[in-house]
Structure formats: C-alpha cells, structure tokens
C-alpha cells in the first residue's frame, strides 16, 4: 500500500538531488517546475490548515474552555478577513492590506520586542556561576559585553582584540564543528527518506 508513495519519494528525491549537479538550462527548467508544484500543494494544504484552525477553535468555543474569547476573536477574524479579501482584494491599499499594516504588523513587532526582556531573563539564569563551565561562560560573557561597547577600550586597549579572538577562534571552531555534524545529519536524513529507510512521514499504513 505504501509502495506508491515510496516510489514517488524515491523518484522525486533522486531527481532533485541529480538536478543539483546539472546546470543545463533544460534541467533547471524542470527543477523550477518542481518548485512551482510545491506551491500548488501548499495552496491545497492551506485549505486543510484553515479547516483545522476552525475546528480547533470551534471546539474550544463550544466547550467554553479557558481562553475561549480568544478563540472567538480568531474565528471572527478568519471569516471576516477571508470575506474582505474575496470582496475587496488583497493588494496594497486594500482594506486587508490596511488591516495587515495597522494591526498585524504592530502586534508582530510587539511580540518581537519581547525578545529583549526574555534575553535578559535567560542570560540571568545562564550566567549563574554554579559550575566551572558556567563560571567560564560568565567570564566570557562579561569580557564580550565590555569589549564590544565603547567603554571597553578605555578599560584596556586589548579588550576589543580579545573579543574578536573569542568570536573568530574558539566560537567559530565550535560553530563549524556543529555545522559539519548538521550537514552530515541532513544528508543522512535525506538519504534515509529517499531510500525508504525512514517511512514515518508517510502516515497511516
């Protein structure tokens, strides 16, 4: 029963992998066409996504679960914005575009701005000197913070150089070691999927 999807996965995976090595314009045209197909698949999946969103919030609303007013806002927004988009269009200057710019964007910026506060609280937790490693991290962080601001060179002219060395040598070495592992892991996972060793993504058997 799974033979069909496995065959499609193998053929499309092998084709895309092969196309990576073939710069011929006709091959790249095929590659671009395959990428266009993913957009079509995404459009259909978005319908399923909207249905899932509706179902999960309608369930909360019916059960009067904690936070149900948020579900009501979500459902009203989903229906309202969809209707407005169909009726008036979604281009620049349309009502949907204005709502996006005046409501959605500021809300997203507000959420993003919270990052400054959570970085402070996470740093407070991480920089407690509970062990040798945590103490090393704390000392490195202090050197980095002082060395990267204007007061750093006033304390010691060597501080900016030390911070550059920390970033370019030990930090970069660790990052590259992880990156090599990630690269090999990614190739391994891709091969497992193309060769049919990993099948959990296929879902119901």
């Amino acid at each position: 029963m799974r033979r069909g999807p496995l065959l499609v996965t193998f053929l499309s995976g092998a084709a895309v992998a092969a196309l990576f090595f073939i710069p011929h314009h006709q091959a790249q045209a095929v590659n671009n066409k395959l990428l266009e197909w993913t957009l079509v698949v995404y459009a259909f999946a978005l319908i399923l996504g909207s249905m899932s969103l509706w179902n999960s919030h309608a369930r909360k609303l019916n059960a009067r679960a904690e936070g149900w007013p948020f579900s009501l806002v979500t459902l009203v927004s989903l229906v309202g914005i969809t209707a407005l988009g169909i009726w008036k269009g979604v281009g620049e200057g349309s009502p949907v575009g204005r709502i996006y710019n005046t409501v959605n964007s500021p809300l997203a910026s507000t959420m993003f701005a919270l990052l400054a506060f959570v970085i402070a609280s996470a740093a407070f937790r991480a920089f407690r000197a509970r062990s040798v490693e945590a103490t090393l991290l704390l000392i490195t962080a202090i050197v980095m913070m002082i060395g990267r601001v204007s007061i750093g060179p006033l304390i010691s002219p060597h501080l900016p150089g030390v911070t550059e060395w920390l970033l370019d040598v030990p930090n970069l070495a660790a990052k590259r070691a992880i990156a090599v592992g990630v690269g090999l892991g990614a190739v391994s996972t891709a091969l497992k999927i193309i060769l049919g060793i990993e099948r959990s993504y296929l879902g119901r058997s």
Binding site: V41, Y42, A45, L46, L48, G49, S50, S52, S200, Y201, L202, G203, R204, S205
Partner: peptide, 17 residues
C-alpha cells in the same frame, strides 16, 4: 503547527503511531 503541509503529514504520522 506553523505550516499546513507539515500539519497534514504530522497528523498522519501521529495517527499511525
């Protein structure tokens, strides 16, 4: 889920599990 395609795949995988 953040992506509707991922959601569809995950739903099938969890049901199968």
């Amino acid at each position: 889920c953040y992506d509707p395609v991922v959601m569809t795949v995950l739903d099938g995988a969890v049901r199968d599990a």
